[in-house]
Design a protein around this nucleic acid. Sequence first.
DNA 1: AGTGGCGTTTTTGTATACATCCGTATTGAC
DNA 2: GTCAATACGGATGTATACAAAAACGCCACT
Lengths: 225, 225
Amino acid sequence: MRHPLATSTFHKLRDEIENGIVTGTLPPGSRLDEVQLASRFGVSRTPIREALMQLGAIGLVEIRPRRGAVVVNPGPNRIYEMFEVMAELEGMAGSLAARRYTEEDRAKLLAAHAECERSVKSGDTDAYYYDNEIFHRAIYEASHSGFLLDQCTALHRRLRPYRRLQLRVLNRMKVSFGEHTRIVEAILAGEAEAARELLRGHIAVQGDRFGDLIASLTSNGQKLL
Amino acid sequence: MRHPLATSTFHKLRDEIENGIVTGTLPPGSRLDEVQLASRFGVSRTPIREALMQLGAIGLVEIRPRRGAVVVNPGPNRIYEMFEVMAELEGMAGSLAARRYTEEDRAKLLAAHAECERSVKSGDTDAYYYDNEIFHRAIYEASHSGFLLDQCTALHRRLRPYRRLQLRVLNRMKVSFGEHTRIVEAILAGEAEAARELLRGHIAVQGDRFGDLIASLTSNGQKLL
DNA sequence: AGTGGCGTTTTTGTATACATCCGTATTGAC
DNA sequence: GTCAATACGGATGTATACAAAAACGCCACT
């Protein structure tokens, strides 16, 4: 076999499989057969295994010795815990952003917010889902903490499938956008603690919203539970 | 070659190499030669590569395509950012612990605190370093958030080498223990916000303390910078 | 003497082969 | 008829072989 761009073969495989997991093509609990994946991607088992090892290390797949790899299936409780931590990290990012944002950060944040508004007005849930990610990333970047950016990005990615479900809940998009507006105001006003609390509340899955999330999960044909 | 406990060979290798990194046997910037490691552990390159992939995924080593793996060398700035996030997560754990701790958690926390006291009184820095980890782990566990426990444990591990240096700073051990005492009081009194703030302050590397840390790093013969 | 190009050597990335273990099904005994 | 034990198929874990790229050094040329 030719190796035209050999350096990134296993890297590509990792992204490919990871993408399949977060998009739902490989639902939680799926068995990840090495030979099957190998033939599917036209490579040998070696780079497949290396990709699975990486995904195992970041907690996306569970590698049971001698028993193969499966897509991790976090229960409702663990999903809740993940959102809890995400809320805290987002709050931290917002707090730092309020104190450290530059003119460039401000422009990016406002631009992302404007994009979200467009998607809300057109009622495009998928577009809002995408714009929402850019908006939050703008906050992470405005925190000017590279490590926090990495952590938030990674966790945000892992929560992708559940966040997508959340948006389907009635009116969630409009409510979310309203919260964004207040968050932007707090950050640009330099009100660190206000930004922290607003973002914590924005992410946290509290009361009814957690029930809604669980309902979405179970009504989706057990695919995610 | 026999494979008596084949299931965990690469797993052991991962822990072994990771241990070498956090203990300083493999200082930041070291090249991790695959054949060298393979012969050193008496295995082939395959499991070595799989172990390195995992370490690369969690950010302990940097894998440059076609150019080998090296132990990551975070600059002072990134180290500071990591402590910043650690402080936030610890604060969160303390806050949750204050609200959720059980009788068993209370016993473990007090026991760990007592062990710390013993080490302080005997002036044993290494013992305190060890007891300190148990103490903090007791807080993570009392938070009753499995995901938070995982996150805190992982980050705590990555910060190990720097924390060890910190303790060498004059009187740090006694000051640390005094802070522990107030943290225990706040948690057991159920004062969530107080526990959060105390733990944040306990971890955060602020003002002089960050300077001390950097000084320790640079005076250590550039091994860590 | 310094620099640039070319060949060698070392190392990484992938494929394949082999040994071991898990899961399952079939068969036999009670 | 049911349960258990064994054997077989299949998948994982590791080792080895091979291909390609990068690092290194050497020689020639300016």
